[in-house]
Design a protein around this nucleic acid. Structure first.
Length: 287
DNA sequence: AATGTCAACTCGGAGT
DNA sequence: ACTCCGAGTTGACATT
């Protein structure tokens, strides 16, 4: 008995959670609450450490798909972005933030990023957006600074995320205006937020499946034990059932009762095995 | 110093 | 062709 035995039973847990489509529609359903939507396809097996999640880890991707660094290095030789007005609404931001356009311009292939800047409205938003200058107090130019959203901004974003985990362009614009951020920043925040939600949900699923696995292992153990007991019981009762067939009735020499035929092809018959029935010492053990 | 967090990035796939 | 999004990654900053 033990885990090895349970493994021998080939107990396998596989949950696809097909309720959530693998390829979501254009506008995926809102994952409003972590209520076991089971989107990730987790597999469980009893061999080895039971739980394997199909979500790949960072380390699995040794190769960077893109030339992000190359892009950065390339662009750092390009013209510097214009310095924006200092953060007059500075209290809104916990720390100095770079010009978002400068951040965006780290890569040269900025087709996607630039689409956010096309409309005059967005340019206006950008002008008011969180930023100081491209040059920090050390004089380092165009260094990538990390923007930290304020509590108020985070709270509002969270609130909005609770209502809808994806934004349409209008919602994005409105939220960006309200938060004094670029639409692109709002978009990124929502993307990252969805990713975090999914990761968290995956962890929850994993824990759930681990518990399932433990429960099933215990159940399997219990059933194996029960089976053993039944087998033992059957063996003990074997002489009684050994010769029950009406076709070849035999008479117990001791009490003159009849027994089965012992035909192995009869699924209900138990083959008589002399080793369990000592005619000499116990001729009527079945009785 | 090591580790965690998270905004911002690239890339590729899918929808229109 | 364009747009959006998910997956994976990077790097600045915070925390331990």
């Amino acid at each position: 008995m033990g885990l090895d035995d349970t493994c021998n039973t080939c107990l396998v847990l596989g949950l696809g959670f097909s309720s959530t489509p693998e390829t979501p529609p254009k506008k995926p359903p809102v994952m409003a609450a972590p209520a076991m939507s089971f989107e990730p396809f987790l597999t469980l097996g009893l061999s080895g450490e039971s739980c394997r999640v199909t979500v790949t880890k960072k380390a699995d991707h040794a190769v960077n798909k893109g030339g992000y660094l190359c892009h950065r290095l390339h662009h750092e030789h390009e013209e510097l972005p214009t310095s924006a007005a200092a953060a007059t609404a500075g209290d809104l931001y916990r720390q100095a933030s770079p010009d978002p356009s400068a951040v965006s311009s780290f890569s040269s292939g900025r087709i996607k990023r630039e689409r956010d800047l096309l409309s005059s409205e967005e340019v206006e938003v950008e002008k008011n957006s969180c930023r100081v200058s491209d040059e920090d107090e050390d004089g380092a130019i165009n260094a990538r600074k990390k923007l930290r959203l304020t509590k108020e901004q985070s709270a509002l974003l969270e609130e909005s995320f609770k209502q809808h985990s994806t934004l349409n362009p209008n919602q994005k614009q409105a939220l960006a205006r309200e938060l004094n951020l670029k639409p692109r920043q709002v978009e990124v925040w929502f993307q990252n937020r969805r990713a975090r939600t999914k990761l968290k949900q995956t962890e929850v699923d994993c824990e759930f499946l681990k518990r399932c696995c433990e429960t099933l292992t215990n159940e399997n153990r219990r059933l194996q034990k029960e089976l053993q007991e039944l087998k033992a019981l059957k063996m003990a009762a074997q002489p009684f059932y050994a010769n029950r067939s009406a076709a070849t009735l035999t008479v117990c020499p001791s009490c003159e009762r009849t027994g089965g035929d012992g035909n192995p092809k009869n699924p209900f018959s138990i083959p008589s095995k002399p080793r369990f029935y000592n005619h000499v010492t116990n001729p009527s053990a079945a009785c």
